[in-house]
Design a protein around this nucleic acid. Structure first.
Length: 948
RNA sequence: GCCCGGGUGGUGGAAUUGGUAGACACGCAGGACUUAAAAUCCUGUGGCUUCGCGGCCGUGCGGGUUCGAUUCCCGCUCCGGGUACCA
């Protein structure tokens, strides 16, 4: 029988489907294991070979766990709401629901070709009303809760109202955006609208008017993490600041827990670092500065309260609320000019020209509480409205930016830290002794910080404070293709959440997807939908894509449940994700939101665990190779296109060239520095791109005119590593790989490429090695159509290599090191071939061991060995001890660190015995003859070193 | 600037975390089979040196600890990722 991959794959795919082989039961008698992939956004382009990398790894892992006796949940779903489908709808008129569904079908097809063991009956699509019903419900719960800082958890708004009635806003220590406190009596006197507004400052999902990142081209607002270098992450459109009323999530309430609980999860250091960085905790103090001739006090945050004696001026952000009030008549014009200058600058300009110092004096003064000196109040771009309090005390002697500012505007500088004891330390280092600082003089910086905070608290002008960089995130999008907010406004304009029985609030069907100008969602134009409920109007914004992906992993636990997110029993049994695999591009937004939602649901006692993902592995990206040819910009006679070899283009810097990406299939040894187009390649190229017919190609030693006489020519192309994308003609489709080499080969090759975590360009060149391996493996069972497996007793050498392989592979799987396990299989098969071993008792466990990696060939051979059904027994229990122990081990023997020989020592020998055998052996005697043995170092199982 | 990674043959990458560096694979070279090619199989393949046995050098660079360092420590350097007027 031949090794025919297409035949084997189609039969076994059918078998799995008919027998529900990968159906997952909620069988609570078995230990559970939850393996999760980050679900994809189903784009129209389909999968390329980079996408399945992580999926293959999790598939191997979950098959391994299942074979080892675990009840494994390994689901797949689709992140189906999002901008691309809507953009596509605007361009083509195809409803996003339709294009999304078509894409999903295509994805499922492609995924099942690779032989994944997903239980599709548990699949989720975030755009389905049955799913987003619960996304909306969680939102209503966020709306109905606030964060109690004392209890360190979310509590109901009703309980908050009770506290207000008792003691006003000061009776509660909560995460809030409330600016002015109120008493119980004031609360009671509030109108319904005033109460609603006050409560809005506490809700975990709340509305606020704030500066948002508006992208006119996309017709929506963007979160900070959707903006790169002042341009939208998607599409690269300009983004401007705009004041709008938007929904937001009070993620800052959870900042402390999101930070400290990172210690309890098994994620990579770099990923944790990215989250820590994003949360951005800094310790310091808040201090209030009196303003001359004004009752207000300017609040600042500083990490260096010790330097307060050197605070010689203050700076407010240009957008600070008090700028107008603090500006004196004499300065009015200048301040107005400055603010209009700031507003005229785009985000990109503000970010790229950070070195330029700008600012303006308001004319007002504050009082330094320690020196009692008048300090001028300035405004300046370098102070950000969104960080800290939007105002700083400037200490030009100890902060580089303050120093640059003070130097430019001639402001006073007082040295407060003597760093002479710490040569080479920078201003940022918290080192040195305090000087010119009254009671702090002579104290080291670190101690001075504590002392200063104490003094500040004693004076009643501030307190120690922890500040976070992270902001509350904007949660509104003015788009069609997202979850509608389950919110309605009553006749007074007060927002109310829809109760569960009114959910899901479904998207109206429409063919109008045009983004609105002026910040209104397309839904707002649908008046029938907006006013459907008598006496109410509906919220017309929709949620961002991150909403649906913040809790999808819970839905897999009980995907069809119409009554709850998932049943209590299932939530308890499946608990949380044991292993999560996905790319770093979600390091911040998705993973932070998912943790936030999970912690919130934990507070509500809906989920039993505090963190959603116990272990997380970031798979690297598989990149593409981009091949360029150089097209001379100046055309030849009669408009002839002229292409030149790379070395010609590079040695003629005065000539201008365009770099044309070219289909990688035409290029010989693509991806290497000396990739080239030969004559055949050039012909294919002009055929495929007819507008270059008749072009002239010039290499270092030859010229060829398309359509003319054949000449031997190698036109060197330029290779780069970059994205796999249609526009670079370098997309490698997994379907093609599966068709050509088989799914097993494709799977094993992707694993063989290198560590999962590493990014690397796709290179098909090595795939033959894996293909050969699989054929060799097959050849252990079949020669010339004949099954050659025998029932001979296994030889000890065969047992040894088998059990070494089982041990190596299972250790490697646990370590998520699949490239080395593939190698181990290769070693094993090579060894069994040279031993001519066809023993059933060796091959049976070997098939079981290979099954997670190459399920199709394993299923086929498993049944050919006479077994029923799918591979199900475990080959993974550790047999190796009983076989390997009986053997002797070859010990290398070194003298003074130099390897001299090797001898056989029984593997169960003790350290002393090893030493005796080594010293007594003849081969070693000749090296140590006549010398004193000073020391013998024995590493059991490894080596012996003799020092003479 | 700051925070994470990383630097090993022609290439992708191993090395049980201090114990024979280069497993496995690609590529390359030689050979077998073949009329020939493909496929397959065998042999070799870090560098220098030697007819050969062997010897010397070798994990980005410079030092250190150790009987022994790709691994640990100190100082550089280059590459990749993240992030930034963050007070």
């Amino acid at each position: 029988m031949d090794y025919n991959t297409a035949d084997i794959e189609s039969r076994w795919k059918k078998y799995w489907e008919e027998n529900g082989t990968y159906r997952v039961s909620d069988d609570r008698s078995k230990p559970k294991y939850y393996v999760l992939d980050m679900f994809p956004y189903p784009s129209g382009a389909g999968l390329h070979v980079g996408h399945p990398l992580g999926y293959i790894a999790t598939d191997i892992f979950s098959r391994y766990k299942r074979q080892s006796g675990f009840n494994v949940l390994h689901p797949m779903g689709f992140d189906a709401f999002g901008l691309p489908a809507e953009t596509y709808a605007i361009q083509t008129g195809v409803h996003p629901a339709k294009s999304t569904n078509d894409n999903i079908e295509k994805y499922i097809q492609q995924l099942s070709n690779i032989g994944f063991n997903y239980d599709w009956s548990r699949s989720v699509k975030t755009c389905k009303p049955e799913y987003y019903k619960w996304t909306q419900w969680i939102f209503t719960q966020l709306f109905a809760h606030y964060y109690n800082n004392d209890a360190e958890k979310a509590q109901s708004i009703d309980s908050l109202v009770a506290k207000f009635e008792e003691g006003g806003s000061t009776a509660v220590n909560a995460a809030t955006s409330l600016e002015e406190d109120f008493t119980a009596n004031q609360w009671k006197a509030y109108s319904a609208i005033e109460k609603a507004e006050a409560l809005m400052n506490y809700r975990l999902a709340y509305q606020k008017i704030g500066y948002v990142n508006w992208c006119e081209a996309l017709g929506t607002v963007l979160a900070n993490d959707q903006i790169k270098d002042g341009l939208s992450d998607r599409g690269g459109h300009p983004v401007e600041k705009r004041a709008m009323k938007q929904w937001a999530l009070r993620i800052t309430a959870y900042a402390g827990r999101l930070l400290s609980d990172l210690d309890s999860v098994d994620w990579s250091d770099s990923l944790k670092a990215m989250q820590r960085n994003w949360i951005g905790r800094s310790e310091g103090a808040q201090v209030f500065f009196d303003i001359e001739n004004n009752d207000k006090k300017i609040e600042v945050f500083t990490t260096r309260p010790d330097t307060i004696f050197g605070a010689t001026y203050m700076v407010l952000a240009p957008e600070h609320d008090w700028v107008e009030e603090l500006t004196t008549d004499a300065q009015k014009d200048k301040i107005r000019d400055y603010i209009s200058y700031v507003n005229s600058r785009s985000e990109i300009e503000r970010m790229s020209e950070v070195k330029e110092v700008t600012g303006e004096f308001t004319g007002s003064y504050a009082i330094n509480p320690f020196t009692n000196e008048r300090v001028p109040i300035w405004i300046g771009e370098y102070v950000l409205k969104d960080y800290g309090t939007g105002a700083i005390m400037a200490v030009p002697s100890d902060d580089e930016r303050d120093k640059a500012f003070a130097t430019k505007f001639g402001l006073q500088i007082i040295d407060v830290v003597d760093k002479s004891d710490y040569p080479g330390s920078s201003l940022k280092d918290k080192t040195g002794k305090m000087i010119n600082s009254g009671f702090l003089n002579g104290i080291e910086v670190v101690a001075a910080i504590t002392a200063a905070i104490k003094a500040i608290e004693a004076k009643g002008i501030g307190s120690g404070k922890i500040n976070y960089r992270m902001r509350d995130t904007n949660f509104s999008r003015q788009r069609y293709w997202g979850e509608p907010f389950p919110i309605r406004y009553n006749s007074e304009g007060i927002a109310e959440a829809l109760p569960l029985e009114r959910l899901p609030l479904t998207l109206p069907d429409t063919d109008d997807f045009q983004p609105a100008v002026g910040g209104k969602s397309p839904l707002a134009r649908n008046e029938a939908w907006v006013n459907e409920e008598v006496g109410y109007t509906r919220e017309t914004d929709t949620m961002p894509a991150v909403a649906g992906s913040s809790w999808y992993f819970l839905r897999y636990m009980d995907a069809g449940n119409p009554e709850e997110i998932a049943s209590k029993e299932n939530l308890k049994y499946w608990d949380s994700v044991d292993l999560y695999v996905g790319g770093t591009e979600h390091a911040v937004s998705h993973l932070l939101y998912a943790r936030l939602w999970h912690k919130f649901l934990y507070d509500l006692e809906i989920v039993p665990s505090n963190e959603p993902f116990k272990k997380l592995i970031n798979q690297g990206m598989i990149q593409g190779v981009i091949e360029f040819v150089y097209l001379q910009k100046e055309k030849g006679e009669g408009g002839q296109n002229i292409f030149v070899s790379q070395e010609i283009a590079e040695s003629n810097p005065e000539t201008e060239y365009a770099m044309i990406p070219i289909h990688i299939d035409f290029v010989s040894s693509y991806g290497s520095p000396d990739s080239y187009l030969d004559l055949e390649g050039l012909k294919k190229f002009t055929e495929w791109w007819p507008s270059y017919k008749g072009a002239k190609f010039i290499s270092a030693d030859a010229e060829y005119i398309d359509g003319g006489q054949d000449v031997e020519i190698n036109l060197v192309t330029k290779s780069e590593v970059g994205k796999m994308s249609k526009r670079y003609y370098n997309v490698v489709n997994p379907d093609d790989m599966v068709e050509k080499y088989g799914a097993d080969c494709f799977r094993m090759y992707e694993m063989f490429l290198g560590p999962i975590e590493q990014s690397k360009p796709w290179d098909t060149n090595g795939i033959d090695g894996v293909s050969k391996f699989l054929r060799k493996f097959w050849a252990l069972f079949y020669t010339d159509e004949k099954l050659i497996v025998n029932d001979d007793a296994p030889k000890p050498e065969a047992l040894k290599i088998l059990h070494q392989t089982i041990k190596k592979v299972s250790d490697d799987i646990e370590k998520f090191s699949f490239n080395t396990s593939v190698s181990a299989f290769m070693v094993c098969v090579n060894e069994l071939r040279s031993q001519k071993c066809h023993s059933r008792s060796i091959l049976t466990p070997l098939v079981q061991t290979l099954a997670p990696f190459a399920p199709f060939i394993s299923e086929e051979l498993w049944s050919k060995l006479g077994n029923e059904g799918s591979v199900h027994h475990s080959a993974y229990p550790k047999f190796e001890e009983q076989f390997i122990k009986e053997d002797s081990i070859e010990y290398p023997i070194s003298v003074n660190g130099k390897k001299r020989d090797a001898i056989q020592i029984p593997s169960d020998a003790t350290k002393d015995e090893i030493e005796k055998i080594a010293l007594a052996s003849e081969v070693i005697q000749k090296w140590i003859e006549g010398k004193d043995v000073r020391k013998v170092i024995v590493v059991p199982g490894r080596m012996v070193n003799i020092v003479v």
